[in-house]
Design a protein around this nucleic acid. Structure first.
Length: 343
DNA sequence: GCACAGGTAGATT
DNA sequence: AATCTACCTGTG
């Protein structure tokens, strides 16, 4: 595999007072097309990677995305001309990433069949959302990481959850490879300032690593009251080896029941973990966006989240979680339009 | 300065 | 069984 040229680069940042930094660039593999590629557009790729399922993808220059999951990091990009998804990874782990990408992108899942099984024929609201976001997919993220990120998510916006994840990774997570991209770090406000100019990409901490951390140090990652939940969950998991892996393998209802035993995990977070981290497509997480969407698209105003979840699983069936993600994307887009009308 | 954000748990009706 | 509140902290 040929690789791009690594080595020192001098880079100017647009923000932060146009300082110039020396950074050591890890050599990245050339862009490779995915052999079996989902039909992403730039919009649906962005919504898939940065629409609230995952919290460690960062937009780079020229529409590429830099992401980290498990012990992998990759860049992804797509042409809007209908070309395949392309990926690139640090040369020293490129083979490993190539082997991990299909699972992360859930390429083994028969999406066409799942989508077709949704009640779009009789549900015009759903049909419109599926059409508007054609190509949007659900990721299959590492189970433990998904749990961690959604424990951070309570009453937080996506940008803030991403910030918590970055702080957790930087403070407690193992370094993956030497420093890669600069735009991403800059966007995070984590661009190196003075001293050692080399910065590594870090994975999220594992649960054993979190169990070894003190709650006070977790709080320093801007977690607020979530730090106690994460700490208590880490202690529980440390006291019950194999519990999380066993939970991931359970059927949906049993797995959800077990996840809800963890401190800080209620129905919504359990459903998110199972949908985005275990491929349980019958999970139907109900957050404020879904409450709004179901109220005005399905006339369910005044319903409780539990009632809406029950309706959603019944109405949408085995792929309810997929329907949820399309409704979620549509509702958030509508919210953005109302905030900034383009005139 | 101040409301508000992809919730949950525990207390109070 | 439903409803109310505290919980932290960055962002607008």
């Amino acid at each position: 595999m040929r690789t791009a040229r690594g080595g020192e680069r001098t880079v100017g940042f647009a923000t932060g007072g146009r300082l110039r930094l020396l950074c050591y660039m890890t050599a990245w593999s050339d862009w490779q097309p995915l052999l079996v590629s989902p039909p992403f557009t730039t919009t649906t790729l962005a919504e898939t990677l940065d629409g609230g399922q995952a919290f460690r993808w960062h937009r780079q220059a020229e529409g590429a995305w830099l992401g980290i999951w498990g012990d992998c990091t990759a860049r992804l990009r797509v042409d809007d001309g209908g070309g395949p998804l392309e990926w690139s990874a640090p040369a020293e782990i490129a083979l490993h990433v190539a082997a991990a990408l299909p699972r992360y992108l859930a390429l083994d899942v028969d999406y066409a069949a799942l989508m077709d099984a949704l009640p779009w024929r009789s549900d015009l609201q759903l049909a419109a959302c599926l059409d508007a976001w054609r190509g949007l997919r659900l990721l299959r993220q590492p189970f433990g990481e998904t749990l961690l990120c959604f424990l951070c998510s309570a009453t937080k916006q996506i940008v803030q959850i991403k910030q918590m994840a970055e702080l957790l990774a930087a403070r407690f997570g193992a370094p993956l490879v030497e420093r890669v991209d600069l735009n991403a770090l800059d966007a995070l406000g984590l661009a190196p300032r003075g001293g050692d100019k080399r910065v590594a990409l870090h994975r999220l901490p594992t649960w054993p690593e979190l169990a070894a951390a003190r709650e006070a140090d977790l709080r320093a990652c801007a977690l607020g009251f979530r730090a106690r939940f994460i700490s208590q969950t880490a202690q529980f998991l440390a006291a019950h080896p194999g519990w999380l892996d066993a939970t991931e393998r359970l059927p949906y209802a049993a797995a959800k029941e077990r996840l809800c035993l963890l401190p800080g995990v209620g129905e919504k977070i359990a459903d998110c973990v199972l949908l985005f981290g275990a491929g349980r497509y019958e999970a139907f997480p109900v957050d404020v966006w879904i409450v709004k969407a179901m109220a005005h698209r399905y006339g369910l105003g005044g319903w409780t989240p539990a009632q809406i979840a029950h309706f959603g699983r019944g109405h949408f069936g085995a792929g309810a979680g997929l329907a949820q993600q399309y409704l979620f994307a549509s509702e958030r887009a509508a919210g953005r339009r109302n905030l900034s009308p383009n005139r």
